[in-house]
């Protein structure tokens, strides 16, 4: 059986809010290492990969592999019944029909309990190759969100070019064009504001801004985001979560015919 207790319901709320625009139904794969999720969007353009390691929970107990097939709209409805600061416990039997969610207030004696019916989801898992990316950019997640939002006002696509000069996000649209260039930057007062660019060779790729802007819904999960790029492979957008857990988005590039 599964029993996984999260100190703050907020973490799961935010994770689900971040992916619900991309994915409708998905399996939460539980085993002794934690709770993982991998799902493509309907258009097969983007892939979400989440890992909540067992260390992110206390306690965490899951003695065999359990796949919880959950409709994310249903999960969102139930998670709205939790206060952000509530302690959340997920429970399921070994071959479950439902997943049980218990929300406890640390301050009062309130205890809420919900069951969500599970679905059989025949989900294909993709093998994500280990990639040595040509460029990695770590930057404030709010900054990435702002750039994405600003350029989306002008265009559907963004070109991301990374050179030793810095990283340039640029777009061309009907009303004109725009670009934002960031250079490596160390903020002495607040390292959350740092921009670090790790480059082994120049990269230039084009991506859909609609997808990037969806990924940016995860900005509330982490003050930092890491973009990893290599020519002609999907972009990796990664938000680090507590206890070495993560929420990753992969986005296939747009490539010239």
């Amino acid at each position: 059986m599964l029993e996984a207790r999260l100190e703050q319901a907020n973490l799961l709320k935010k994770v689900v809010d971040s992916i619900t625009n991309l994915v409708q139904d998905c399996n939460f794969d539980c085993n002794d290492s934690g709770i993982a999720l991998q799902a493509m969007d309907n258009s097969h353009v983007a892939l979400v990969a989440m890992m909540l390691r067992s260390d992110a929970f206390s306690p965490f107990r899951c003695d065999r592999n359990i796949a919880l097939g959950i409709n994310l709209t249903s999960l969102t409805k139930v998670l709205r019944c939790a206060q952000n600061e509530d302690i959340l416990t997920l429970k399921a039997e070994d071959a479950p029909d439902v997943v049980n969610l218990v929300f406890e207030s640390a301050e009062s004696d309130r205890l809420s309990e919900y069951d969500i019916k599970l679905m059989d989801i025949d989900q294909e898992h993709l093998g994500i190759p280990d990639t040595e990316y040509a460029a990695s950019i770590t930057m404030p997640s709010a900054e990435f969100q702002r750039i994405t939002r600003d350029l989306l006002a002008l265009s559907e696509s963004v070109s991301i070019e990374c050179t030793k000069e810095g990283v340039k996000f640029s777009c061309q649209g009907d009303i004109g064009s725009g670009s934002v260039t960031l250079r490596s930057h160390t903020n002495v007062d607040n390292e959350d504001r740092n921009v670090s660019i790790d480059l082994s060779e120049p990269v230039s790729l084009m991506f859909s801004l609609k997808y990037l802007s969806n990924f940016c819904k995860a900005s509330g999960l982490s003050s930092r985001v890491k973009l990893s790029l290599s020519n002609e492979v999907p972009l990796l957008v990664e938000y680090a979560l507590p206890s070495n857990s993560f929420l990753r988005f992969y986005l296939a590039p747009k490539i010239g015919d």
Partner: peptide, 14 residues
Amino acid sequence: KTQQRSILGFFAKK
């Protein structure tokens, strides 16, 4: 002219 690629073109089904 650019075309949106599918993620399946890069990551194989297991």
